[in-house]
């Protein structure tokens, strides 16, 4: 009775379906258990009976009958098929790679179009130009600190056109976002401060009273 637990494993072992790790365990048991060895022999006999069914034949007339019926229906369906049906079959057909390749090509084309539309060659942003009021005419002796700074800063002004590398007209803005205050008659000199992308480079453009610079 104790050996009943081995029966399912013996039923697999008899046809070689038992997992390898269990085979050695079962074979060890079979060496010592007469009851299980007898059960294995009985199973071998019943399995050999089952295997005899492998040799059975099929009646040719039965096969012919089935084939004739199937082919008659198949031909009837084929006659009713239009070119649309054939195209659908071709398109849907087992060639999954066809869909994969087609999908990839469409995806790539779409990506390229979107990329081209989204990233046109943008001109560089124009530098901000601030028009600073010209420093007040320098008095003979007493120079205010701020004016002195301004003069000092305007000292290294390059007088050549600094915007050669910026083809777009520079945006003009007032210094500190404040409207340009009308300057007094005597301070018509104007300093244009050109801010570039590089915070370390500031270009000053000094307009003199007589219109030169």
């Amino acid at each position: 009775m104790k050996c009943r637990g081995w029966n399912p494993q013996i039923a697999l072992y008899v046809e070689g379906d038992l997992e390898l790790e269990s085979v050695a365990h079962l074979e060890k048991h079979l060496e010592v258990c007469v009851e299980c060895r007898a059960f294995l022999d009985e199973l071998r006999n019943s399995q050999s009976e089952v295997r005899q069914l492998r040799n059975e034949t099929v009646d040719a007339s039965s096969l012919n009958r089935v084939r004739a019926n199937v082919m008659r229906q198949v031909r009837a369906v084929e006659e009713r098929r239009t070119w649309m049906d054939h195209f659908a079959i071709w398109l849907w057909g087992g060639y999954r790679w066809r869909f994969a390749v087609l999908g990839s090509v469409v995806l790539m084309a779409t990506s390229i179009v979107i990329w081209r539309l989204a990233s046109p060659t943008m001109p560089p942003s124009p530098p901000t130009i601030a028009i600073a009021p010209a420093p007040a005419p320098v008095p003979s002796v007493d120079v205010p600190a701020a004016a002195e700074r301004s003069v000092t800063r305007s000292a290294p002004v390059r007088r050549s056109r600094p915007v050669a590398s910026h083809p777009v007209a520079p945006k003009v803005a007032t210094l500190d976002e404040s409207p340009v205050e009308p300057q007094p008659e005597e301070s018509k000199d104007t300093v244009v401060q050109i801010l570039t992308d590089d915070p370390n480079i500031v270009i000053y453009w000094l307009f003199e009273k007589n219109g030169g610079f």
Binding site: P8, L12, V14, E15, E19, E42, L43, E49, V50
Partner: peptide, 17 residues
């Protein structure tokens, strides 16, 4: 599948015997 096969073989063995 192994479970089905095992049960089926035992059952068929009993039937055949």
């Amino acid at each position: 599948v192994r479970s089905h096969l095992s049960a089926a073989r035992l059952r068929m063995k009993r039937f055949i015997e």
